[in-house]
Design a protein around this nucleic acid. Sequence first.
DNA 1: CGTTAGTTTGATGGTCCTCAAGCACTGTGG
DNA 2: CCACAGTGCTTGAGGACCATCAAACTAACG
Lengths: 244, 244
Amino acid sequence: MKNIAANPLTQKLSAFVALSETELAVLERLHQRRKSFCAGRDLVHQGQTKQAAYILASGWVVSYKIQADGSRQIVDFQIPGDFLGLRSVLLHTSDHGVEPIVDIEAAEVMASDLLQAFAETPRLATAILWAVSRDEAMVVEHLVGLGRRDADARMAHFLLELGARLSLVGMGSKAGYACPLTQYHLADALGLSAIHVNRVLRKLRENGLVTFRDGWVTFDDYGRLIELADFDPTYLDQARPLLP
Amino acid sequence: MKNIAANPLTQKLSAFVALSETELAVLERLHQRRKSFCAGRDLVHQGQTKQAAYILASGWVVSYKIQADGSRQIVDFQIPGDFLGLRSVLLHTSDHGVEPIVDIEAAEVMASDLLQAFAETPRLATAILWAVSRDEAMVVEHLVGLGRRDADARMAHFLLELGARLSLVGMGSKAGYACPLTQYHLADALGLSAIHVNRVLRKLRENGLVTFRDGWVTFDDYGRLIELADFDPTYLDQARPLLP
DNA sequence: CGTTAGTTTGATGGTCCTCAAGCACTGTGG
DNA sequence: CCACAGTGCTTGAGGACCATCAAACTAACG
């Protein structure tokens, strides 16, 4: 038996599909072309036409769009095990920018690598498509939050979802997680001003729900936080494996 | 030469890929299992576990999520040529509801039909993946609008995007388009109250930008509307075909 | 030890929500 | 034919939520 959680993508997929030796090997092969990028230097520029897709191996990344007036909307954060820039490859042009929040390592994957892997192992293909669909579902949930949740519920939901995602790759639990985001990141993700983010965080902390401080998120009352956020982890937290 | 625009999906894809006879035939075959559904009766319920995917042949459809407090957020509208419920098939459970706005016709497609079509015609597979990626890009743009645009720009952007999509299937132009949506639909899509939607529409109309009235959208000043909305149709309006 | 990035607090005001009510149009049944 | 209910559109008044401006504070870093 190999080391099951050699990389975070494998770990994530293993939670939902029992992977065979062959499939584990294919996943490992996808991780070969490792590259490092340092924090703050855009990995992909908005509007860039030629680029590859990546699998994030370590570190945090942010995907965002800049408006004409200079304001920024963060679409999603990527954590280890997530794909970067898949859509950009298909559209042949990137509609958004991608920036490492901390120094990261990522494996470059060509469209051809992926197609070959799919042809070899159909079950793996299904697992990866599941992961991509899950990412899409998260974006939709994010959209709902921006449209129909007030600032408190939005923040609560965001912190809970991030916690659930991190748990899947062994970087978090119902107690909390390490988090390199600044309040400015939260503001740009949640469609709020950084000032209001600060007030919301204070309120949640004073109400004994969750603490965001010194690069660490602590759930003080997981149950009440879920209630406030109307958080339904179904789409993240598949109860049983999708494939036999 | 066959009738090129036998169905709206073919018409949409033809704008970006020169399709061969074989590919046209495969697309036609996907449309075989036609079904009709009447307005207002949910096609897919939020949380439903078993269902198929569809290609919309005629009519308008809305995808939405209902919150615990009863409020509704519309994620997207589908128009002829669009896919319905593709993600739900992969996730094995629907995270959103799907409701026809008017009486519609849709072709049911099984996952297996799609996979077979992909295997037969790789170029068609790429074209369809492009269409799916474009849908995703629209959801992202919608998210940005909710997070970072004020009500006026949001409305302007929405009406412009819809116009561009409809033009691709021959149902609209830079002059305007027929539109069966109510102001309540707009409110639920844009994260506003119906009352505020009404005021915004009045303002846009009085400023000579766009008129939304009696089931018809008329662009009174396309250029200024684009400027107000910061609308960039790149992601919808591929300048040159993606494939030779 | 000044600079910079990030956090915190206060004051003021605008955007947009909520409540309330009226109007126009359509279809229904007495 | 007319009362009626239902749906969708329109307008007004008051107020909540959150943005903006201004400024102080901390910690890290060269």
